[in-house]
């Protein structure tokens, strides 16, 4: 089964507050999409509607050509703080998850063990979940989301609650699933999004305000600038004073902003040569996702 989702005009109101407002996007099969936005932007509500926990106020979700159907047997879901029955062990829990999602009794054990091995909990499969650390719980959460081999994987802030080590482990696991499953994950941590994404969706106050691939969006919001590293702070200061180009200085570095239309690099190099100062490095810098995020979210 291919994993294509088309969402049109998805809207959720609670009373007269619109939490998700007319959101339209497409998830192509086997791609990873990052849902980005500040807290309260409507990320979790969007995912809740896709997983059938919330009924949309209006709008439709078309899955493989079929509109507004229950496709929960094709979904794997992981939340930021997955809650488990502490008295169970991971193997029992996964077998139950698998069987509830339609895996047959005779293959449930095998699939569960495979999923546990994949997330690195093979050795802990008979230990009580109650004693698990946050990182182990999140890995178990990923295992329960994939044990029934879903076509779609929805992850709500999957790594936000973890320490750097745990985050790295889980991200690497999710990356292994990339291009095998249609993934949609929400995050407010932009480095994570930058690392694993085919498409970005920017949400602000419930509205989808920007979408596209990382490179498309980078190009769109890029303000070309150049970084020149001088040998000393004094040299940098001297360069800024004499420079015909708009430049500002930070320690040994000088940042020069230039319009794309101009033959920019040439101009920068000319001005350096002209100044006669020793230079260590000249670089054309790209905007980071974080800078783009701030721009998009602040509506500039």
């Amino acid at each position: 089964m291919s994993g294509l989702i088309y969402v049109e005009g998805l809207t959720k109101r609670f009373g007269n507050e619109t939490v998700v407002d007319d959101v339209t996007f497409t998830l192509e099969p086997n791609t990873a999409t990052a849902l980005i936005g500040p807290n309260g932007a409507g990320k979790t509500t969007t995912l809740s509607m896709l997983t059938h926990l919330l009924e949309p106020t209006s709008g439709m979700v078309v899955v493989n050509g079929k509109a507004n159907q229950d496709f929960r047997n094709k979904i794997g879901f992981l939340s930021q703080y997955p809650k488990f029955y502490g008295w169970m062990n991971p193997l029992e829990y996964l077998e139950m998850a698998a069987r509830l999602s339609g895996v047959e009794a005779k293959s449930a054990r095998h699939e569960s063990e495979k999923a546990l091995d994949f997330v690195g909990l093979g050795d802990a499969k008979k230990k009580k979940i109650g004693g698990f650390s946050g990182g182990m719980r999140q890995r178990l959460g990923l295992a329960q989301a994939i044990v029934h081999k879903p076509t779609f994987l929805f992850l709500d802030e999957p790594v936000s609650a973890l320490d750097p080590l745990g985050r790295r482990e889980l991200l690497n696991l999710i990356k292994e699933l990339q291009h095998k499953t249609t993934i949609l994950y929400s995050t407010h941590i932009l480095n994570d999004a930058e690392e694993m994404t085919d498409q970005l969706l920017f949400l602000r106050k419930g509205k989808l305000i920007e979408q596209g691939s990382l490179t498309d969006i980078q190009q769109k919001y890029e303000e070309a600038h150049y970084e020149v590293h001088f040998a000393s702070v004094e040299d940098a200061a001297q360069f800024v004073d004499a420079s015909p180009l708009p430049a500002h200085q930070e320690n040994e570095q000088v940042y020069i902003s230039i319009n794309e239309e101009q033959p920019a690099m040439q101009q920068v190099l000319e001005s350096i040569v002209h100044s006669g100062l020793p230079v260590n490095k000249v670089e054309r810098a790209r905007a980071s996702l974080e800078q783009i995020f701030l721009k998009v979210v602040n509506g500039k």
Binding site: S79, K83, A97, L100
Partner: peptide, 13 residues
């Protein structure tokens, strides 16, 4: 309330 049911509700329960 404690969230353990989420795991059931996102499946074809």
């Amino acid at each position: 309330k404690n969230g353990t049911a989420a795991f059931l509700y996102v499946r074809p329960l």
